[in-house]
Simulated scan of single mutants.
Amino acid sequence: MRLVSDSTWTELLLLVMAFVLSTVIGIERQVHQKAAGMRTHTLVGTGAALFTLVSGFGFNTVLGTDVNLDPSRIAAQVVSGVGFLGAGVIFMRRDVVRGLTTAATIWMTAAIGMACGAGMPVLAAAATVLHLIAVGAFGRLARCLPSPDRNRLVVVRYLDGSGVLRSILSTATVMGFEASILGTDVRREDGRPQVRAEMRFRGRPPLQDLVLALGELDGVTAVRRRADDD
């Protein structure tokens, strides 16, 4: 058995290119402080490339008249496996879904790694550039487009007399929202006075991010969105 074949250097070059392109995507995710960062994306892309290289070049020694090679079988399994990995970064809390973009990025990174492993580095590099455009420029464009969030109210319940309102307004300001209070009333629930405030938040960021952040503040007992005509 030969340790170094005629295609070994080509395989190493493709593997290194998958490593580099995956790292580029991982750095972008790391800069934006996502759950899956540079290490995760680098490993996913490099691993996908390695599986594809093994599928394409690893079984040449056993080929013969009675043995046929189907490189697409391992590639198909990689796609399925990455789907389970991506699903692991998606979670839902207070009716807000988080992690969809990160899951899609992991899936894209695996595809880029597979393209490198299949001997299509130009396609992999182009896909990396398109990914950066999608998560960068498209993200800013989406914040400028009209959104139904601007026509929604947020109902916040919080403990009275604990300075929670100040924390709510501060959090909204930090996240780029302008808050206006439409009305409040105080009710006793579980033996403690709670304030029910109807508020409108105007701003470019997705409103669901603010809803999730408000729900994690100390003293806030409930947060929900509703349309103006509810």
Rank of each mutant, 00 (worst) to 15 (best):
L53N: 05
V54P: 01
V54S: 08
V54H: 02
S55C: 08
G56P: 02
F57A: 14
F57H: 15
F59K: 07
N60Q: 15
T61F: 14
V62F: 13
G64Y: 10
G64T: 10
G64I: 13
D66Y: 13
V67P: 01
N68G: 13
L69F: 10
P71W: 10
P71H: 08
S72D: 06
S72V: 13
S72T: 14
R73K: 13
I74Q: 04
I74G: 02
A76I: 06
V79F: 12
V79T: 01
G81L: 13
V82H: 04
F84I: 10
G86I: 01
G86V: 02
A87Y: 08
G88H: 10
I90D: 07
F91K: 03
M92E: 14
R93G: 12
R94H: 09
T101D: 07
A103V: 02
A103N: 07
A104N: 03
T105V: 04
I106N: 02
I106L: 15
W107S: 02
W107R: 00
T109Q: 00
T109P: 01
A110W: 07
A111K: 04
G113V: 10
M114D: 04
A115T: 02
A115I: 04
G117Y: 07
A118K: 08
G119D: 11
P121S: 05
V122I: 14
V122T: 13
L123H: 03
L123S: 05
A124H: 03
A125V: 09
V129A: 07
H131P: 00
L132T: 04
A134G: 11
V135Q: 00
G136Y: 00
A137T: 13
A137K: 02
F138Y: 12
G139D: 11
L141A: 10
R143L: 14
C144W: 12
L145S: 06
P146D: 06
S147P: 02
D149W: 05
R150W: 13
R152P: 01
L153C: 07
L153H: 08
L153I: 10
L153T: 05
